[in-house]
């Protein structure tokens, strides 16, 4: 009986954490989103073990958490390093909305501020 309760609370915790992490993943700013997605992948790997699928857990831990995370972070880094010739809307918006003193704000700072607003 106690074991049942323990298992059920573990299940509930896992399920709620999964949905919560997914929600956070899809609502935070991009960098946080990606880190949260990696966490989501790790919790998902835990879930696979709970559902007696260790093979899937192995694949998920290596791919879902590791490789996808690296891919996404790489893409984000490239996204942020795109030249400021209008190809990055966030930066464009930032330069329109905030008066940047010459040399006062680096594009990266401006973008970070914009991301926080977003």
């Amino acid at each position: 009986m106690e074991k049942m309760i323990l298992l059920w609370s573990f299940d509930a915790l896992l399920g709620i954490t999964l949905v919560w992490l997914a929600w956070l993943t899809l609502s935070r700013d991009l960098f946080k989103s990606i880190v949260l997605f990696i966490t989501f992948g790790l919790v998902l790997a835990l879930t696979w073990v709970r559902l007696e699928a260790p093979d899937v857990a192995l694949a998920e831990a290596a791919i879902g958490a590791g490789i996808t995370g690296a891919l996404l972070l790489g893409a984000l880094a490239r996204l942020e390093s795109t030249p400021a010739d209008g190809s990055d809307p966030a930066r464009e918006k930032a330069s329109l909305e905030t008066v940047v003193p010459p040399g006062g704000t680096t594009p990266r700072q401006a973008q970070r501020r914009d991301r926080n607003v977003e």
């Binding site: 997914a22 899809l26 991009l30 998902l44 696979w48 007696e52 699928a53 879902g64 996808t68 996404l72």
Partner: peptide, 28 residues
Amino acid sequence: IQLHLLRKILAINVMGSGVFLLLIALAT
């Protein structure tokens, strides 16, 4: 609803994870 393409890709991944979870859960 998300406009950023990177976030749309994340969303697709979350969708896929949901499908995997459904499949594995029903397999038990």
